[in-house]
Design a protein around this nucleic acid. Structure first.
Lengths: 146, 146
DNA sequence: TCAATATCATTTGCATGCAAACGTTCATGC
DNA sequence: GCATGAACGTTTGCATGCAAATGATATTGA
């Protein structure tokens, strides 16, 4: 018989130590904090979309999706709902007939400042269990696995 | 006029540096890796559910949801789909008539070993951009913000 | 005992999130 | 000029994910 062999084929597997499970649970806690701080009944993806639009101005729908890490089907839904809320607007691209150009409406623009303030509060609250150095470390390590 | 005051009311806000955005994008990458490694067309939540059932044996549906960090409505959908796949089974609780007792089917049991192996591979691949010490640090910091 | 409360499971409604297929339009290269 | 392929936006189908409401059953405390 071989040496002190303790089942290397099938060692313990602890769900709560897996990166995927932890990412899901951390996202849940963040979503809770988001919801109790956000202005105007926006969801996280809607929030990201408005922030991005404020940065870039006018942009095509698919490109906006790439800028916010959203699938073409997902960004379409988000854009539709933000249009319904009157926070963004779209116009046909006169040069490229395939595209529609998305931009913030005046009401959307008016919200940006408050949204950024809420966003800062949300991030602060989410990271509150960590001290300043730990926060930097966490964000740095997360950035490496994106 | 005051000193070198650079708009403390509204400092820069960078979406990609926010913990919420990073959690979402990291989860997306993990989901990709999950999908290309998992056995038997399972989703991450279905995977977690089976792993937990293998640990605890028999458990009520709502309790299973708490053990896997899922809402009652979410765990119901997951349980239904796993039942359809024949990987889990449910029986009425004879003591508490409100409950149904969920457990793995023989087919579900037979999958556990392969699932754990795939799960380890998925975590390894997701954390591959980090060295061993960084991986430990990341998991430790994430655990603090759950 | 028995009323108030809690738990369990279900259902509805809304919002991501992704894959796949589709028709339209644009860009490229021959 | 024109075929080929790429990019754009849309739609469908499936699977989370959560809030809120509902009915059934258990538990608890006065």
């Amino acid at each position: 018989m071989t040496t002190n062999h303790v089942n290397t084929e099938n060692p313990d597997y602890s769900l709560e130590d897996q990166i995927g499970f932890m990412l899901r649970v951390a996202s849940q806690r963040h979503a809770n904090i988001f919801q109790s701080n956000i202005v105007g009944r926006l969801t996280p993806t809607q929030f990201s979309t408005i922030i991005r639009l404020a940065e870039v101005g006018k942009v095509s729908q698919n490109h906006l999706g790439r800028l916010t890490a959203m699938d073409v089907a997902t960004i379409k839904g988000v854009v539709d709902r933000l249009k319904t809320k009157g926070l963004i607007q779209s116009e046909p691209d006169l040069v490229d007939k395939r595209r529609s150009v998305i931009s913030l409406s005046p009401q959307g623009e008016a919200l940006v400042s408050d949204l950024k303030r809420a966003g800062r509060q949300i991030s602060t609250e989410t990271l509150a269990p960590l001290n300043a150095k730990e926060q930097k470390t966490l964000l740095g390590l997360l950035r490496k696995i994106l």
